[in-house]
């Protein structure tokens, strides 16, 4: 796959700023570095906007449930800002995208890309790993050796894995 066309996000080196056209914002920070960024964002939001800041260790079910509830109650003009490790940002972004939030309404700052979530299409389990793209990781669900492919699903917020030795004669 040509690098030009990969779906692996390129986060850019500049941290985004709050959208000046936002009327209400939810800032979600993951980990200490992510929360430092959301604190800085909160200070940058122009006066008169409703701002809520959430702090979490990682994108666990509890924080994703809060995110889902906030989206359900939001009005157009609302913006989501996510800061933290890529795995958590992708997981939270996936929840938002599935709920109908647009890319134009989400801004992300990624503090590290070491951790990944890898989706196994053979057993449909998502595995946490620190393997690099094109590396391998065992699947938590079925134990297959997964090749970490240079494809990120926006909807699942995870890298695609596939059976590394599928073509080899057993």
């Amino acid at each position: 796959m040509g690098a030009e066309h990969t779906s692996v996000p390129r986060w850019g080196t500049e941290r985004p700023a709050p959208d000046p056209s936002a009327r209400a914002l939810l800032l979600v920070g993951f980990g200490a570095r992510g929360c430092a960024i959301t604190t800085a964002w909160a200070a940058d939001v122009p006066a008169g906007r409703a701002v809520e800041v959430l702090a979490a260790d990682d994108a666990d079910e509890a924080v994703l449930a809060v995110l889902t509830a906030r989206i359900a109650g939001a009005r157009v003009g609302w913006r989501l800002m996510l800061a933290g490790p890529e795995a958590d940002v992708l997981a939270a972004r996936a929840v938002a995208l599935r709920a109908g939030v647009l890319d134009a309404e989400i801004r992300c700052a990624v503090t590290s890309t070491e951790r990944k979530r890898v989706y196994c299409p053979h057993c449909r389990t998502t595995t946490a790993t620190t393997a690099p793209v094109a590396g391998e990781t065992p699947c938590d669900g079925c134990g297959r050796r997964l090749h970490v492919y240079a494809h990120v699903s926006r909807r699942a917020g995870a890298y695609l894995g596939f059976m590394a030795d599928a073509e080899e004669v057993a």
């Binding site: 959208d19 056209s21 936002a22 009327r23 157009v76 003009g77 609302w78 913006r79 647009l102 890319d103 134009a104 309404e105």
Partner: peptide, 10 residues
């Protein structure tokens, strides 16, 4: 719409 925070995509 722009003034009220609607992204152009909406």
């Amino acid at each position: 719409a722009a003034e009220l925070g609607w992204p152009a995509e909406r």
